[in-house]
Simulated scan of single mutants.
Amino acid sequence: MTAPAEAVLRPLRESDAERMARLHVAGWRNAAASSLAATTVAEHDGDLVGFVSVGPGRDEDLDLEVELWALYACAAWWGRGLGHRMLTHALAARASYLWVLDGNERATGFYRRQGFVADGTERHEPEGRELRMVRR
């Protein structure tokens, strides 16, 4: 058996959009099949405008059982209360935690308004440094 050819790494191009979407969906389906996350979408006039995913906490050094895995709203919906509604729907008042990219002031401010505070823990991911925020 011959070894597979090496993959070429290059910047994303606009012409990649459709293939990128298919790849993303395939990855999501594979992950969802083995995931315990609960995902809720926000829909308006037939379009998806946001989503929230919550699952079991994955950080062994923390005594919180619930982690906010993802929260996303289309930019047109920022400042309209959608993020708050999705977060409240997914977490209610449960103690939980999340990771946020350092320097994302919009997200950090939003999470502070929802009662989350940085606990001083950070990690380094390919996207950059992430900070952990908790709400008890």
Rank of each mutant, 00 (worst) to 15 (best):
T2V: 07
T2M: 12
A3Y: 11
A3K: 14
P4W: 01
P4A: 05
P4I: 04
P4S: 02
A5V: 07
A5D: 14
V8G: 05
L9Y: 14
L9S: 13
R10V: 10
R10E: 12
L12V: 14
S15H: 04
A17D: 13
A17I: 11
A21C: 08
R22M: 08
R22N: 03
L23W: 01
H24D: 15
V25P: 03
G27R: 01
N30T: 11
A32S: 14
A33Q: 08
S35V: 07
L36Y: 06
L36G: 15
A37Q: 10
A37W: 07
A38K: 09
A38L: 11
A38T: 13
T40S: 12
D45N: 12
F51H: 14
G55Q: 01
G55A: 00
P56W: 00
R58I: 11
E60W: 11
D63Y: 03
D63L: 09
L64D: 13
L64R: 14
E65V: 12
E65K: 08
V66T: 15
E67M: 05
L68K: 06
L71H: 02
C74T: 13
C74L: 15
W77T: 00
W78Q: 10
W78A: 06
G79V: 07
L82P: 05
L82A: 00
H84P: 04
M86P: 13
M86G: 12
L87D: 02
T88R: 07
A90K: 02
A90V: 01
L91H: 00
R94F: 01
A95G: 14
V100P: 08
L101E: 10
L101D: 10
D102L: 07
R106N: 04
R106E: 04
A107M: 07
A107T: 09
T108H: 06
R112M: 00
Q114D: 07
F116D: 03
G120D: 08
T121K: 04
R123E: 10
R123T: 13
H124I: 13
P126M: 00
L131C: 04
L131V: 15
V134R: 06
V134K: 00
R135L: 05
R135V: 07
